[in-house]
């Protein structure tokens, strides 16, 4: 085997190891978040809140998107229910069960909704911001 081939093999193995370790890490994060998903809990500003109660407290809204219509409660209502003071002055990091996260502003929270199956929909943002299995909203 020539040197170039050896380098290619080593590089390939290293990349696959990083990928495998990342997949394992994601599985661990998912496992850690399973109790939140099963218990129908979402953590907002460090407070565990019941999804069922939030859906009772907030008025559901239908949003029209290019991917179709979605019904859920406004994300802004979740923030208000959690008791965040001056919500318009903060940024919000939305985190999914697999660790994927995106930070949005208050205007986006006003437009966005979370569906009963924990899918966040932002009609005014690209789909990179739409997340399945949301487990936490961190207030920054």
């Amino acid at each position: 085997m020539e040197i170039a081939e050896k380098v290619a093999v080593i590089l390939a193995v290293l990349l696959l190891l990083v990928g495998a370790a990342s997949s394992f890490h994601l599985q661990q994060i998912q496992k850690e978040n399973e109790p939140l998903l099963e218990g129908d809990i979402i953590t907002v500003n460090g407070k565990d809140m019941s999804m069922v109660k939030l859906f009772e407290a907030c008025t559901q809204r239908e949003v029209e998107t290019v991917k179709g219509n979605y019904t859920g409660v406004p994300l802004a209502c979740l923030i208000n229910e959690s008791g965040v003071a001056e919500p318009e002055t903060h940024d919000y990091t939305i985190r999914a069960a697999d660790g994927y996260e995106k930070t949005v502003q208050w205007d986006d929270m006003l437009n966005g909704i979370i569906t009963e199956d924990r899918y966040t929909v932002f009609p005014t943002l690209p789909r990179a911001y739409w997340m399945h299995d949301v487990v936490e909203i961190e207030v920054k």
Partner: peptide
């Protein structure tokens, strides 16, 4: 937060 997801995606 996204980096592990990127590497896991690239692994496949």
């Amino acid at each position: 937060g996204v980096m592990p997801k990127i590497f896991a995606h690239a692994f496949i």
